[in-house]
Amino acid sequence: MLRFLKRWFRRLFAKQDVKLGLYGPPNSGKTTLANRICKDWLGEELGKVSKMAHETREIQMKESVTIKSKDGRELQFNLVDTPGIATKVDYEEFLKAGMPEKKAKKRAKEATKGVIDSIKWLDDMDAVVVVLDATTDPYSQVNITIIGNLQAREIPVTIAANKVDLRKANMKKIQAAFPQYNIVGISAKYGKNINNFYEEVFDLIGA
């Protein structure tokens, strides 16, 4: 009942240019998910993905993404893909991955700026999907800080546990870490469970 009322109020006072942010730690698959959404509904990708952390170092936005629900409802939003939030950036990690020193230092500098931009944009979001890598430890303080800030600002949030196609994925651990949130297990890369994710987005934004 409470959920229905929340949705009804949100629909009543719905903004025209809803910003849906994708937040999370580096390498959790935010850009892969953004690409999946854009490819499914606009037929084009948003950004480059890589196995190396901090591939996305600038905020990327795709305006006017319209998705449709199973029962024919439509929802339009501006999709904001953000650089991964981290508490440390070490250029030596990029060196180890085979990057030349100059490039590694530049990447580290851009990555720190990207984290700052992500944090600055956080309060401007109307709804957020926190994208977590289901194969890694969900108890990282970065995840808790992001979610804690969204909760404090009463910004609707849902959790996408990505990479469930991998054997190491542990949905139960994520559910145990964030029991008060809706969690949808997906594989952004292969599109697994992506329709349930879209239904969750409808619920999140309240359309």
Binding site: I85, T87, K88, V89, A108, T112, K113, V115, I116, I119, K120, L122, Q141, V142, T145, G148, N149, Q151, A152
Partner: peptide
């Protein structure tokens, strides 16, 4: 939570 967020931001600025 907002102080934790600012701590991360300040950290990034000083790396």
């Amino acid at each position: 939570p907002d102080e934790e967020k600012e701590l991360i931001k300040a950290t990034m600025e000083e790396i």
